[in-house]
């Protein structure tokens, strides 16, 4: 048996010992029970502890639900380890073969980090079902092929943590970075996680601001701390609203009228999410409700000379002033190469 197989056997023995035991076990008790070379009394306590901690971490990364309980036999509480059989195995919510096939078909279309690992736990559909999904004989069912891949979706631990908190209705505290780079502490009851236009968002009730808010998840900073449960929603709406960048913010929105030429009319309509009013020359007039003027400016300038603000005059003046900044002598904006 080589050292990799020794480790394999040790991980399996640790799992079954913790599953089989009726009482939580300490690291010392596990060392005594597992006659593994790495756990033997020939090794120093430090060496054993290092190996044990690594093994524990590996098992947790595999999704083995090891629980840690503290029991005080003496003055110092000692960690006791335990795997609850009812938590380890799925008794009630088993996927049918058909449901598994549907999930596998989805997994072959969508690439998402860490998703395929879950299929090691769910099992696989029976042969007949697998055949109907078009999985080639002798290939891994969840393996993606270049031809079959349709969606590449980002996903990370923050999205996962927030989804779990929303589903379990746990209020959370975290620091949030605004677009201007400043950060502030937020206490939020998360309702739903959503992916739109290339980004993950979370909608929930902001306890400090006493209002429903949308948050960009890439701006939520760790640690995300659970601060207790919530039982019912406070807000008026459910789900992430399809908000455009210029709609974010507080206060009364301003209605802004924008003209877009015929060339970019279709594109602008799609990006703004409004059909607008088509003119005789195929140009388009859009009416947007704006809270965030810098975001509106970004949208209008993205169309270069294909678009202009018509009303109100003061927002139009703001944009003109912004543009005039570039045409006057302004050595500071372009730093001609310095040493």
């Amino acid at each position: 048996m080589n050292k990799h197989q020794q480790k394999l056997k040790r991980l399996l023995n640790l799992t079954t010992t913790l599953l089989e035991s009726r009482t939580p076990l300490t690291a010392k008790q596990l060392r005594e029970r597992l006659a593994d070379e790495a756990y033997s009394s020939d090794k120093s306590d430090t060496a054993f502890r290092r190996t044990f901690e690594r093994d524990k971490k590996d098992l947790i990364s595999m999704g083995v639900p090891i629980e840690v309980r503290k029991h005080a036999y003496s003055e110092l509480p000692v960690d006791h380890y335990y795997i609850d059989q009812s938590v380890y195995a799925e008794r009630d919510l088993r996927f049918t073969s058909g449901e598994l096939s549907a999930l596998l078909l989805a997994a072959r279309q969508v690439r998402l980090p860490g998703a395929t690992k879950a299929f090691l736990k769910t099992g696989i559909p029976d042969h007949q079902e697998l055949k109907s999904t078009g999985v080639a004989e002798g290939s891994t069912p969840y393996e993606q092929t270049e031809a079959g891949l349709v969606v590449d979706l980002p996903f990370n631990d923050t999205v996962s943590t927030l989804a779990s908190c929303a589903a379990r209705r746990k209020a959370i505290r975290y620091r949030y970075r605004k677009a201007d780079g400043s950060t502030s502490s937020r206490e939020v009851e998360p309702w739903q996680i959503s992916f739109k236009e290339g980004r993950w968002y979370m909608v929930g009730w902001d306890r400090h601001r006493r209002h429903e808010r949308n948050f960009r998840i890439d701006r939520i900073r760790h640690p995300i701390v659970e601060i207790g449960g919530f039982t019912s929603p406070v807000g008026q709406t459910a789900g992430i609203q399809a908000m455009k960048p210029w709609e974010f913010g507080s206060g009364e929105p301003v209605e802004v009228k924008i003209w877009v030429d015929a060339e970019l009319a279709g594109w602008a309509s799609q990006k703004s999410g409004t059909s607008g009013c088509l003119q005789a020359d195929d140009s388009l007039i859009l009416k947007l409700r704006v809270r965030n003027r810098p975001a509106l400016r970004t949208f209008v300038l993205s169309m270069l000379e294909h678009a202009k603000i018509l009303e109100p005059q003061w927002i139009k003046d703001e944009l003109v002033a912004w543009l005039e900044f570039f045409v006057v002598d302004r050595p500071s904006q372009v730093d001609v190469t310095e040493e």
Partner: peptide, 10 residues
């Protein structure tokens, strides 16, 4: 029994 999916996997 198949192993239970944890929250992250689900």
């Amino acid at each position: 029994d198949p192993m239970r999916l944890n929250g992250d996997e689900a």
